[in-house]
Simulated assay, not measured.
Amino acid sequence: MIVTLTLNPAVDVSTNVDRLVPTHKLHCAQPQYDAGGGGINVSKAIHRLGGHSLALFTAGGPNGLTLQKLVDTEALSYQLIHIDGMTRESFVVTETSTNLQFRFGTPGPEITPMEAESCLTALSKLPASTDYLVISGSLPPGLPTDFYGLITRQAKAQGIKVIIDTSGKPLQSALQCGVFLTKPNLGELARLVGKERLEGKQVSLAARELIQARWCEVVVVSLGPRGALLVTNDLHEYIPAPIVKTISTVGAGDSLVGGMVYALGQGKSLSEAARLGVACGTAATQNSGTHLFQKQEADELLAWINQQSGSVNEW
């Protein structure tokens, strides 16, 4: 069983306008509303592929009710952790004249110590059949920066493999407790190993540095439109991404994680999981808002990736 955790979800609002002009009243297109936040998007991706997961997330205020309705629309299995604060909104505007995308996010509601304890309690009661816990998204205000580390230790004690997808100190705190898999981008990986930037073979060396420190067993480095790099102690594989027309990058990273954990839950190899992840992440960029992708789109891209991956070793 796969469980996703989203401590700082959002109601994602997306729209488009011909051009962003300061001080002018801009007439935007009818907005699209989606349930957002890292873990929720991962669960949506798993559901798109025909899989099942339990989405665990906080929700509060009128926006929390809207979020719940949007999750209901997605037909996801979920469990709410009620909070007093108002669930945040995120706002994405696409400028149609340039195809540039502008993304606006807010910090989210402050989580009280009692609400934090409710989160830990909910996690302690996960079914014994839980194989993977995907911790994804930002840490909301009010929680200590080592909170993902606390969750990681608790999940490991329950025999659950942790997949972490976040950034900064919350990411480092989880890694220091030893996770199964992490998905940093190049910038995040560089910061984790104390470098300003990474190029070429430095990327796989930095990933192995995390593995040798026992911070994780698997690193999948997100390379954006170039694909991803899968690294373990004895495996180094570059997975290229097909060139597609990009409409929105929102949810692409979450789709990558969703594809990977779905495949792992189906008993697929790490290589097969990473390839499906890149296919799902790429497919998500072809859709607006946080619609993510359809299975057929991911399947078509996966066929291309499987043809290319055997002959491409460097990026």
Rank of each mutant, 00 (worst) to 15 (best):
A206Y: 01
Q294P: 04
T6N: 06
T23M: 13
Q79Y: 09
V221M: 03
A213Q: 09
V92W: 00
A283T: 07
H52C: 12
H236P: 00
T290Y: 05
V93I: 12
S288H: 12
L181G: 04
T285C: 08
G60R: 03
G38P: 00
K125C: 15
L256M: 13
W215Y: 13
I151H: 02
F293Q: 01
L270Y: 07
L302N: 02
S271Q: 13
K201V: 13
P9L: 04
C280A: 13
S204W: 04
V244Q: 09
L171S: 08
G259D: 03
T4M: 07
T285G: 08
T249C: 15
V312F: 08
R197V: 03
S138L: 04
F102I: 07
V11K: 04
C177D: 04
M114G: 14
G224E: 06
D146M: 06
Q294K: 13
Y78N: 01
A241W: 07
V93F: 04
A29W: 03
K156I: 08
L229Y: 11
E209Q: 08
P107F: 08
G258I: 11
V250M: 11
G137D: 01
G259P: 02
L26D: 01
R88Q: 07
A155S: 02
K295E: 05
R197S: 14
S129W: 00
D254R: 11
W315Q: 05
A213R: 10
S138K: 08
G159L: 06
G108V: 07
G61I: 12
L256G: 02
P141Y: 10
N99K: 14
S97D: 04
K44T: 06
Y33S: 12
G200P: 02
L100A: 15
Q307Y: 06
T249K: 14
L175H: 02
L235C: 14
S269T: 10
T98M: 08
V257Q: 10
T130F: 14
G178T: 05
D165W: 01
A213N: 07
D234R: 11
R88E: 00
R103S: 15
A190W: 00
L229N: 01
A55P: 01
F104K: 10
C119K: 03
K169V: 14
A155I: 08
S118L: 11
S118Y: 10
A273K: 00
Q176M: 13
P9Q: 05
R226S: 15
A122R: 11
T4L: 12
Q68M: 14
L143A: 12
Q158A: 14
L7E: 03
R275Q: 15
D299E: 11
K195M: 11
Y262K: 11
I83E: 05
L192I: 05
A174Y: 00
G105V: 10
G251H: 11
S222Q: 01
H24T: 12
V134K: 03
L230M: 15
L264H: 06
I160E: 02
A59S: 12
N63R: 08
T73D: 14
E115P: 05
C28E: 02
T23H: 15
L150A: 13
H52W: 04
D34M: 11
